[in-house]
Write a protein that binds this DNA or RNA. Structure first.
Length: 622
RNA sequence: GCGCGCGUAGCUCAAUUGGAUAGAGCAACGGGCUUCGAACCCGUAGGUUGCAGGUUCGAGUCCUGCCGCGCGCGCCA
């Protein structure tokens, strides 16, 4: 059920909608029908002294009318009829119109919100949302960078799905370039049994392949210039020659692979299978919705690449330069190379084929790339090239939005990109294992308290909850700050469970679950309990709950998941304040108790739903 | 050199997309459990939002110029 299914007699959940209608009518009444399109700019007030909501249209509108904003606000305010929705508005400052909801109206909105939709409106746009996420490189173990590309993409996908959009999660595997061929060649040359291939073999082969192909022409130059001993010079010459041999061998392997050599293709598939086995282990721990059905890697586009080149050539958008084919842009120096001088294709070619596929064949109205910020220039080039050739036009002639979400780097406490002590990339798995261990420790420690509902639980259950807590800590820490910024990875802070953290939200959720469980009442007994919002904390909690739908809608618009985090943190704060001040099971009378239980149930649903769209679990106890 | 991004409390981060007195958490200090879970709540203190101009009723947010840090800069992905 969603908002659009509601009968007209049911008041919509969001008071902002009601206020918008009323203020708009007042604007028309005061100024005339030609102002019917003016946005009343209804916002939740930040400070209770300015009411619950405010209408901020007057200042900008007065400017265009050449009038004093305060006079205009006064005039419109006099024409506002909020009926039994709100008290008569007050004018403040330069022309703010402050609005205070009547308690009954607040309760009615909240009751209208108390269904499966929870105030989240459906987005009727029939176009798909395509999300490029994860970014697995075959034969390479996942590291910290993949954490962000995976969980941010998954969270966005969930949020769009929550609003009813069709989402395509695209795992654009790096499965078709020279690096893969190098590893493949290395494995075959070393006689590794590919049927028992392990991640460690892949890691080793990847490293060896990189090493043996690394030429050192500069070292040779230096050696010659500084008249190094003949021994050293011979050594370097051999290394360079060896590197060239290794590269040639890898290229030959690539050519055979691309030519469809059955044996090589079979081995190549084994490489992918091995890589993906470890990827799915991590994905599974992370509670991310991604499977084989989401794989559409570089190899998928290989047959479409010649056509990309032809299309650009036919459209007169590409030109030859030093034997390469490039697309030039009027506003920047560097062109986009779409075909190498040796006739080979590049990642830009593949990306262009992917844009076309995603818009034309998947009918994507928004194509979102969750890839780290360093590739910003690359995607700008690719998107601009795609637009110039018209590949951003959906089959029904709508202009698709192509957007790169360039997230920042995960830093260590030295403010440098996170590395191990020995300077290696930190594997995702090691990060997750530590988070899980810390989560389990915390839950186990907590369970020693006799009052804790986890007291006496079997160890396997403690471990299950601890895993959810540890993963929540790590994911929430990542999702809760602005994507574009780098952030410092600090496990201690994440698992401290204080402040704006995943476990803090899980705790608030567990509190509601405990109360509801202890009440002994089933849903029927709460369903139509009248909501009595008498205490200040009850009212603030109600206002916080009502903002949920807007918080979700905002993220499908801005593509900033951290706003849902901030919202949930505010809600949990409001709940904890309410919890502190208002006894629920020990309320003075039965009516109050049932009202407060209903509030708890709503909080529980919103937190669980909010965490779910972030890909975070909400255990009933912890 | 050119391009892009980022500078907010001692530390880690927010700021409803241009709105009122810039808010949280940590660290510091003070208060609250014989009552639903204290992983909590309430309070005190902490700021020239890198600097300088500009736009306007109003700027952390937009524009210009500096400073600092990071990233990128044709045939790797």
């Amino acid at each position: 059920m969603n908002a659009t299914d509601q009968t007209p007699s049911t008041p919509a959940a969001d008071p902002v909608e009601h206020l918008r209608v009323a203020v708009r009518q007042a604007i028309v009444a005061a100024l005339g029908t030609e102002y019917a399109d003016v946005d009343p700019v209804i916002r939740a007030s930040q400070n209770p002294q300015f009411g619950d909501f405010q209408a901020n249209f007057a200042m900008a509108l007065a400017k265009s009318l050449g009038r004093k904003p305060r006079d205009l606000a006064t005039e419109v305010a006099a024409a506002i009829d909020f009926g039994d929705l709100a008290d008569p508005p007050e004018i403040a400052g330069p022309g703010f119109i402050n609005i205070r909801l009547k308690p009954d109206a607040l309760a009615r909105c909240l009751e209208a919100m108390d269904d499966d939709a929870l105030g989240v409106t459906a987005d009727p746009d029939p176009h798909a949302v395509v999300i490029d996420l994860c970014g697995v490189k075959v034969a390479k173990e996942l590291h910290v960078g993949h954490l962000r590309a995976t969980i941010i993409g998954d969270a966005l996908a969930r949020i769009f799905e929550r609003r009813g959009r069709l989402v395509h999660r695209e795992n654009h595997l790096g499965d078709w370039g020279l690096p893969i061929a190098m590893v493949l060649h290395e494995l075959r040359a070393s006689g590794t049994n590919l049927d028992t291939l392990q991640l460690a073999d892949l890691n080793r082969a990847y490293r060896d392949a990189q090493l043996s192909a690394r030429a050192d022409p500069r070292g040779l130059e230096t050696a010659l210039r500084t008249h190094a001993g003949p021994h050293r010079i011979i050594e370097l010459r051999e290394q360079n020659a060896g590197a060239q041999d290794a590269l040639d061998a890898a290229k030959a392997t690539l050519v055979r692979l691309q030519g469809g050599d059955p044996e090589l293709v079979r081995d190549w598939q084994k490489l992918i299978d091995c890589t993906m086995r470890s990827v799915y282990e991590a994905i599974d721990l992370l509670n991310v919705d991604l499977g084989p059905e989401n794989n559409r890697g570089e190899s998928f586009y290989r047959d479409r690449l010649p056509d990309v080149i032809d299309a650009f050539a036919r459209a007169g958008l590409a030109e030859e330069d030093d034997g390469a084919l490039v697309v030039r842009f009027p506003d920047r120096e560097r062109p986009l190379v779409i075909r190498k001088s040796d006739g080979g294709f590049l990642y830009a070619t593949t990306d262009l084929a992917a844009v076309r596929y995603r818009v034309h064949e998947l009918n994507g109205g928004r194509v979102i790339y969750v890839v780290d910020a360093r590739q910003r220039d690359h995607f700008r080039d690719v998107f601009d090239a795609a637009r110039r050739i018209g590949w951003d036009q959906t089959p029904d002639h709508r202009t698709a939005e192509l957007v790169h979400i360039g997230f920042g780097t995960v830093l260590g406490d030295d403010k440098r990109p996170l590395k191990t002590r020995s300077g290696r990339n930190v594997t995702l798995r090691s990060l997750l294992d530590e988070a899980i261990e810390r989560g389990i420790d915390a839950v186990r420690e907590r369970a020693t308290d006799e009052r804790a509902p986890t007291h006496g639980l079997p160890d396997a259950e403690i471990a299950r909850i601890g895993r959810a807590v540890g993963i929540a800590a790590i994911k929430y820490a990542d999702l809760s700050n602005d994507l574009v910024r780098d952030y410092v990875f600090d496990m201690d802070r994440m698992v401290a469970f204080e402040g704006n953290t995943g476990p803090y939200l899980q705790y608030a959720h567990a509190r509601t679950a405990r109360i509801l469980g202890d009440s002994g009442l089933d849903d029927d007994a709460i369903d139509d309990a009248p909501l009595l919002l008498r205490e200040p904390t009850e009212k603030l909690l109600a206002l916080a709950l009502l903002r949920y739908g807007q918080a979700v809608a905002q993220v499908t618009d801005s593509l900033e998941p951290h706003r849902v985090c901030t919202y949930l943190y505010d809600l949990a704060n409001a709940f904890n304040a309410f919890y502190q001040q208002c006894p629920v099971l020990k309320a003075d009378d039965d009516e109050t108790m049932r009202s407060r239980l209903r509030l708890c149930r709503l909080v529980r649903r919103v937190i669980a739903d909010g965490l779910n769209i972030l890909g975070i679990e909400a255990p009933d106890r912890m």
